[in-house]
């Protein structure tokens, strides 16, 4: 059985794999201003975790469990938000708030009725001890899916972000493309759930990208820059938490927030070209 180092190695490895999707998706989330949608999705994941655990332990359903529940809840919320924003745009904000809160509430209700010990804290704020080989495998798979969608459709995604009605005139399937992006974002929040937790995952998704977007660079460069930042910040957070005996997810989130402030400060001080 691995001790200490094995767990750390897993943590380093999963952030390495996740940085690919987080750099790309985070940049799209920031540029498309859908941070609150991403936040609602990641929080509603608790609902899926609760239902999944309840199915597994109380009902004895073999395919239950927190991970399938989390994935399902993330996808359902993403589809719901996507549908509302396409059909009833004025209600989007309200629905995002509702999914955010109701998703969490459902999770806590089911957890309270789940026999045995189920600690919501480790899902909310992450637990470095829980990162498993399954998580690594799924995160790698997600990275490939993200690259598989974004690389071939980069030009279409760029138009979609910049000017949606023009994208429609160029016959780009804007609704499908934006739904696809949101579904990938949903899966990404699940991928890093174990390490940083569903409340803090939004920080790791959006802050590196927000830092990249402070400086003028093309979108693909911002994606790479955000990915590298995501990797460096999470590694720094893991190391700090190891030596200072702090929770990993919170260390990463606080570091990312500090880095964002520094970036804004640098930008404000820089003379305008």
């Amino acid at each position: 059985m691995d001790l200490g180092l094995g767990i750390l190695a897993n943590a380093f490895f999963i952030t390495f794999l996740a940085s690919v999707s987080f750099g790309i998706l985070g940049t799209l989330v920031v540029v498309r201003r859908v941070s609150s949608a991403a936040g609602a999705i990641s929080h509603s994941v608790l609902g899926g975790i609760g239902i999944g655990l309840f199915c597994e332990r109380a009902l004895g359903i073999p395919w239950g469990g927190p991970l399938p529940g989390a994935i399902l809840a993330a996808l359902v919320s993403a589809l719901g938000i996507s549908w509302v924003s396409l059909r009833f745009q004025q209600r989007e904000d309200t629905v995002i708030g509702a999914i955010w809160a109701v998703g969490m509430a459902i999770g806590l209700l089911f957890l309270s009725k789940t026999p045995g010990y189920a600690d919501p804290m480790s899902y909310l704020f992450g637990n470095i001890l829980l990162v498993s080989d399954t998580d690594l495998f799924l995160t790698a798979l997600l990275g490939m899916a993200v690259l598989g969608v974004v690389a071939p459709f980069y030009r279409e995604i760029l138009v979609l972000c910049f000017d949606e009605s023009f994208a429609k005139v160029r016959n780009i399937k804007t609704e499908m493309l934006s739904t696809c992006i949101l579904l990938l974002v949903a899966l990404a929040t699940v991928a890093m759930l174990r390490l940083v937790g569903l409340i803090l995952v939004i920080a790791l998704l959006t802050l590196p990208a927000a830092i990249a977007c402070v400086f003028p660079m093309k979108l693909w460069k911002a994606m790479i820059f955000a990915g590298v930042l995501c990797l460096l910040l999470s590694w720094a957070g893991i190391i700090a938490s190891y030596f200072l005996d702090l929770p990993t997810g919170s260390s990463i989130a606080v570091l990312a927030g500090a880095a964002y402030l520094v970036a804004i400060g640098l930008k404000a001080r820089a003379p305008r070209a």
């Binding site: 540029v31 030009r155 138009v159 000017d163 009605s165 023009f166 160029r170 977007c213």
Partner: peptide
């Protein structure tokens, strides 16, 4: 479209914008 509808937060160069017209 009206210029105000395009999103200034998206980092695109003038040339990238013009190339969008070639899609399709």
């Amino acid at each position: 479209p009206q210029a105000i509808k395009s999103d200034l937060q998206v980092p695109v160069t003038a040339k990238e914008v013009v190339l969008m017209g070639r899609l399709g």
